[in-house]
Each structure stands twice: as structure tokens, then as C-alpha cells.
Design a binder for these strands. Structure first.
Lengths: 172, 172
DNA sequence: TTGATTGCAAAGCATTTGCATGCTA
DNA sequence: TAGCATGCAAATGCTTTGCAATCAA
């Protein structure tokens, strides 16, 4: 494969350790899937990742990608997010600052953001109810600037659903 | 049917108006589904609501419940929430103060809470990115007090997944 | 050698859709 | 009467599972 050997050393190590601790096995498929997953930006669905992996090694099946994404999530290397379309998306998680998502209902654009104040408030709310917070997800749905503009231009014409586009994320 | 006639007058009116404005039709099924939906507490899945409705009128089909829940959402009477198990849940929305959810990953208990500070922060974040916020959802996942206790008692025994129980909500 | 892992195909779910029939306006 | 609504059955789309073959340790 065409993958550089010394990228993502830490993540690979975390993965190896998780595999050993859990008594699982090291396989070429898992390596490849991890490697390609770590190179993704934004949020990949299992299907997205499957296609990427399949391009490099067409012997890897859908099922393995599904199973490996769960494994990566368990290992703390991936985070599962849902945007409300019924699918699961995954994003590399390790050593990444936690963030939340704002999604445009017009074009599907996803903006990632982080707010320390909101994080703190979530902690105190959890504490208030005696919960030990493990993680959380927050989604803000709205219309992005472009879509507001487009809506003003169409003005009144039933705009219907725009094709769902996922653009490169914007970090705050 | 055994439904009291003067409950939920406002909601019924909102529904009627929505139906008229959209050029749709008034049917016995829609009335019954709305009526029963408004009497639910917590969050019902389409399946849950179907069973409740079916008990009163066994001629009502699954499909109609699905379609009516979407209609109620459009009319602003229902809110769709997802807890991450792949299903959609709905809760009566009209005239209810907005709230978010905290979910116990041990027993599935759902606590509803509201934080004005978080609401405000969400507004400013949306504004910062030029979004016109329409709605949002926030889920906090963690272990509730009881499950923490149970975990401490089992202490080390692989606890596995507890049966998923949905308890009556706690309002803040 | 042992048993975890894989990929295929099939099964499971929740949800949606096609279509003939029924019913509202 | 026109055409929206209904309910059934079938289709869809994502995810999971059963299983025989494969492969890591």
C-alpha cells in the first residue's frame, strides 16, 4: 500500500494496545482501515470509508469496515456522530479537541465549533443530577448565510430539499 | 372513542389550522392519533404510538402513524428527538418549554433539563457563523447515580449492556 | 493448533413508497 | 365527484448476524 509508514504513530500505538488488552488480533484489514480513517477529514459514513478502503484493497468487505469503526470507537480513536439522517458518521477523535456541530438544513453544510462555556455548563448540569458524564453531543440546526441569501432570492418559490452536500468543516 | 372532548383544545385548533393552510384533509385517524399523542408523557416512538392508537382503533395502520407524526412535527405540535438507538422518538411540543436530554447509558433513563445559559450561548454561536438557528438538540450521555452505584457493587464484573428501560422523565 | 477475523449472503429493523380502495370537502 | 388519505405489502437503506473459510498468535 502507498501509506507513509510514520504517520499517526501514536494512534496506531493506542490501537495496538487496545487490541492487546482486549485479547483481539492484529490484522492487515484493521491496519488499513485505521490508516485511511485517520487521513479523513470531516465525517465519514461507514459507506464512505468502505469506498475509500475498497479503492486501496478491494478484498476488504463492508462488514469489516463496520466492525472496525466500532472497534475504533471503543479504542477511543473515533467518535460516532449522527446528523439526523439515520446514518452514523465517524470522525477521528484521538487528541482532537472535542467539538460540536452546526448543520445547515438547506445545503447540509457542517460547521464544527467549540465552546468552553457550554462544556462547563454541561458538566454542572450532569453533576446536578448525579450523572457521571461520559460524553455528549450537541447539534444546532439552522440555515447558513448562503442558504438564507438563496432563500431571499428565490423568495417564496417552494424551494424544496436541496441536494445534501457535505462541505469541508470550518473550525472555530 | 373514550376521549374527553374538551382536552387539548388549543392544540387541536393549531392542527386544524395547519391542515387547512396546507390544503390537507381532516380525518378520524389524524384526530385520534393527535389526541393520544398529546396524552403521552416522555417520548414515544412511532411503534409505541402505533400500539397505543391501535388499542383504541385497530383499523389504524402503522403507516398512518408515521405519516401523522411527521405532520404533527410540521404543525409544530411534536418534536422529533433521537437518543442514538437508531429510532426516532417524538414528544408533544406545543407550549412546552424547550428542553434537552441527559441519557443514562446504563439503564436508559432520560432526564430532561433546561438551561437558559446554554440556550443563549447557542444563539450567539449561531450568530457568529451567520446561521439562522431553527432548532437544536443536545444530548448528554453518562451514568446516572443508581447505575454508578450498581457498577461499584458489581465492581469489576463485566456488566455488559443492561436492558434498556425508559423511565418517566424528570423535569428540572 | 486454536480460536479470533473475515467476507459473503441473509436477516433485522425502522422507515418509506406504490397502489388500489376509501373518504373528505 | 375529485383527489387526498389510508393501509397493506413490498421496497428501501443502514446495520447486524450466521457461517464456512482464513489467518494471527
Amino acid at each position: 500500500m502507498t501509506v507513509k509508514q510514520n504517520e499517526f504513530q501514536t494512534e496506531k500505538q493506542v490501537f495496538s494496545e487496545h487490541i492487546q488488552k482486549a485479547g483481539l488480533r492484529h490484522t492487515a484489514q484493521r491496519d488499513l482501515i485505521l490508516e485511511i480513517f485517520l487521513r479523513t477529514e470531516d465525517h465519514v459514513s461507514s459507506e464512505d470509508l468502505y469506498r475509500l478502503v475498497h479503492k486501496e484493497d478491494s478484498s476488504v468487505g463492508h462488514t469489516t469496515v463496520y466492525r472496525t469503526l466500532k472497534l475504533l470507537t471503543d479504542a477511543g480513536l473515533a467518535r460516532e456522530v449522527r446528523f439526523g439522517d439515520g446514518k452514523s458518521y465517524y470522525e477521528p477523535h484521538y487528541n482532537l479537541e472535542h467539538h460540536d456541530h452546526m448543520i445547515c438544513t438547506g445545503c447540509g453544510k457542517v460547521v464544527e465549533f467549540f465552546s468552553a462555556e457550554i462544556e462547563n455548563l454541561q458538566d454542572s448540569i450532569a453533576a446536578e443530577y448525579g450523572f457521571k458524564l461520559t460524553h455528549h453531543s450537541m447539534r444546532i440546526l439552522g440555515l447558513c448565510g448562503d442558504c438564507q441569501k438563496r432563500e431571499r432570492e428565490l423568495n417564496g418559490a417552494a424551494s424544496g430539499a436541496q441536494p445534501r452536500i457535505r462541505v469541508k468543516s470550518v473550525y472555530s
